[in-house]
């Protein structure tokens, strides 16, 4: 009886393991199957580099170039803001703050991750957007810049906590050796600790970027969603994620538009996959 029970439990575990794997594979296959169907109607170059996104016009234009650039503009803006701030604060938390302050700061930063993105979008829409329009004297506050600011904020928990882990993981003797040679604490941190933690920091940055590029609701609520190739950070943009969220409900199943949105899904999937892969590789290099 006992043997039978054990046998059963092990089968259940095996079954669950296999089911999860099947689900993972299913996501890949399903996205690919639906997305690739688009290319029976549209060629890949027109899709990736077409400058017009008019999905329901007659004939429709499925050029995602403005959308890709929209996502990249917002992501780049957010990265430029988030990376220096995030890493600086990771250094502060890991190396300078007293243990008590450290715990408080870490919990505070983790709280950012807990605020639902629709709440951040809502606050951004009601406070940040009018503020930006007014103080930067722009035609509208619904710009890539507003999105970048909010995404930078949302990427903080990822960047800070992973970079902080990486810095903390640097063996103490490195820093002690530097200090013993007469370096100031800052010199030891800047020249020794950061260098030793660099691959972990790269991972932190990559995962932060991954977080930024995949964000949907907050971006949709503040970037204005104009499918126009942006000339600066202070123009409205339309991101890939917002396009899917805004248009998916409308599409008739197995129409070209439906396939096109899945194709955008594939592009997003590939981008985040590469980003995560780089992060994963640098974490491994870090551990070794």
């Amino acid at each position: 009886m006992k043997h039978f029970k054990e046998f059963l439990i092990e089968k259940v575990i095996w079954f669950c393991g296999v089911t999860s794997i099947v689900i993972v594979v299913l996501i890949f296959i399903f996205l690919l199957k639906e997305g690739l169907s688009l290319f029976k109607h549209v060629n890949l170059v027109d899709f990736l580099f077409g400058r017009k996104w008019y999905p329901i016009s007659d004939p429709p234009h499925f050029g995602i170039f403005p959308l890709v650039l929209g996502s990249l503009t917002v992501t780049l803006g957010a990265t430029v803001i988030a990376v220096p701030l995030g890493i600086a604060s990771a250094i502060y938390i890991a190396e300078i703050a007293s243990p008590r302050i450290k715990e408080i700061l870490k919990s505070g930063i983790e709280m950012i991750a807990a605020i639902p993105s629709v709440v951040i979008g809502f606050i951004g829409m009601t406070t940040l957007v009018p503020f930006i329009k007014h103080y930067l004297n722009l035609p509208t506050g619904l710009t890539a810049f507003s999105g970048a600011l909010m995404l930078a904020f949302m990427a903080m928990p990822t960047i800070v906590s992973i970079a902080e882990d990486a810095i903390t993981a640097v063996p103490h003797k490195y820093k002690e050796a530097a200090l013993a040679l007469g370096a100031t604490r800052w010199q030891a941190i800047w020249r020794v600790v950061l260098r030793a933690a660099s691959s972990g920091i790269v991972a932190a940055i990559m995962l932060g970027i991954g977080r930024v590029i995949g964000e949907t609701m907050a971006v949709m609520m503040v970037t204005g969603n104009a499918a126009h190739i942006p000339e600066s950070l202070f123009e409205p943009v339309r991101t890939m994620t917002a396009t899917i969220a805004a248009e998916m409900g409308e599409t008739v199943q197995h129409s070209e538009h439906y396939f096109a949105l899945f194709a955008i899904g594939i592009v997003l999937f590939i981008i985040t996959f590469i980003i995560n892969l780089i992060a994963d590789l640098s974490i491994h290099r870090h551990r070794e």
């Binding site: 996501i27 399903f30 996205l31 995962l207 991954g210 977080r211 590029i213 995949g214 964000e215 949907t216 994620t241 899917i244 969220a245 998916m248 949105l261 899945f262 899904g265 997003l268 999937f269 985040t272 996959f273 980003i275 995560n276």
Partner: peptide, 11 residues
């Protein structure tokens, strides 16, 4: 774990 949530919505 890093795939955008909207892609899960699509799926």
């Amino acid at each position: 774990a890093g795939v955008p949530s909207v892609v899960y919505g699509l799926f």
